[in-house]
């Protein structure tokens, strides 16, 4: 597989603020890649560098095999971008903006344009100033999804969309990938990333902290065990087991977090007290995410 986007050791500072501090990112051709991070983590800065709007201070970024700063024109014909906060010209209608952006990219699929306008229930005759936030977002989404491109860069594209439209968006993105397209989806809406993305990169303070498929990430993380036992165990004994953390024992009730790979030993130990009931929850993306952000960045 080839990489659509390859970023290595990307650095960018604004005055004294470090926005990107050696970021790595690898997006494979044909995948939907989730780009997760809290506000201010550097997601938008990364996208702006990939768009050639900003120049990196260090590191390298390759986009569709080209240099995003040097080859603006040829690269931009092959991609479409949706910003998180879409600003439209107050006196141009949504339809005019869609056609303009389409013409400035590689061209517009007429059929897809009509289809997307219908599915997103967008009124293209309204002027930019009279659209609500969600509708402005739809204008940019329709323009991007109807464009004849191979890569979509989406920066929190569903902010302001209602759940119905979010579903339409997810379908449209999946169709785009099915047709061979690549998507970089920056977001902090975890359910969205979880349901459409093939792989995920989590960034924090301008650095990549986790990267991989959801399954891989889950392996890296903890499974929550909750058990009711026949006899009360000793909290210290459980906590002493390898790969176990967050042990809470109240009477015969135990909850703890167990790293993948150590589950067997823990179950064996608990078994000695007689297991009355047991639930085990694999981590949701939300938990993965919270885990990365709960504590201050660990220094490796």
């Amino acid at each position: 597989m080839t990489s659509a986007i390859q970023v290595q050791g990307l650095r960018k500072t604004f005055g004294r603020t470090v926005a990107l501090d050696g970021l790595d990112l690898d997006v494979q051709t044909g995948e939907i890649h989730g780009f997760l991070g809290p506000n201010g983590a550097g997601k938008s800065t990364t996208l702006r560098i990939l768009l050639g709007l900003m120049r990196a201070d260090g590191g390298s970024a390759t986009l569709l095999g080209g240099d995003p700063w040097q080859q603006v024109e040829s690269l931009h014909r092959r991609l479409a971008y949706v910003p998180g906060d879409v600003a439209l010209w107050p006196n141009l209608t949504g339809g005019e903006v869609i056609d303009l952006l389409g013409n400035l990219r590689g061209g517009l699929h007429e059929q897809r344009r009509a289809d997307m306008i219908e599915r997103f229930a967008l009124d293209p005759t309204k002027k930019g100033r009279s659209y609500s936030k969600g509708n402005r977002q739809k204008v940019a989404l329709v323009a991007a999804l109807a464009a004849d491109v191979e890569l979509l860069l989406l920066d929190e594209p569903t902010s302001g969309l209602d759940p119905l439209m979010e579903a339409v968006f997810k379908d449209a993105v999946r169709e785009f990938r099915a047709a061979g397209g690549t998507v970089l989806l920056s977001s902090h809406i975890l359910s969205e990333v979880e349901s459409v993305c093939d792989r995920v990169s989590i960034i924090r303070d301008g650095r990549n902290v986790e990267s991989g498929t959801l399954t891989q990430l889950r392996h890296l993380s903890h499974t929550t065990l909750e058990a009711t036992l026949d006899r009360a165990p000793d909290e210290a004994d459980i906590a002493a087991l390898p790969g176990v953390s967050g042990v809470v024992v109240s009477g015969t009730h135990v909850t703890c977090a167990v790293e993948s790979g150590y589950l067997g030993a823990v179950l064996q130990h608990l078994g000695t007290f007689g297991i009355h009931s047991l639930t085990s929850a694999p981590p949701t993306l939300e938990e993965l995410f919270m885990e990365q952000y709960r504590v201050p960045a660990a220094t490796p």
Binding site: L92, G95, D99
Partner: peptide
């Protein structure tokens, strides 16, 4: 309301 199609190309 305005036109639903645009003629702007550049």
């Amino acid at each position: 309301p305005g036109p639903d199609r645009g003629s702007l190309r550049t």
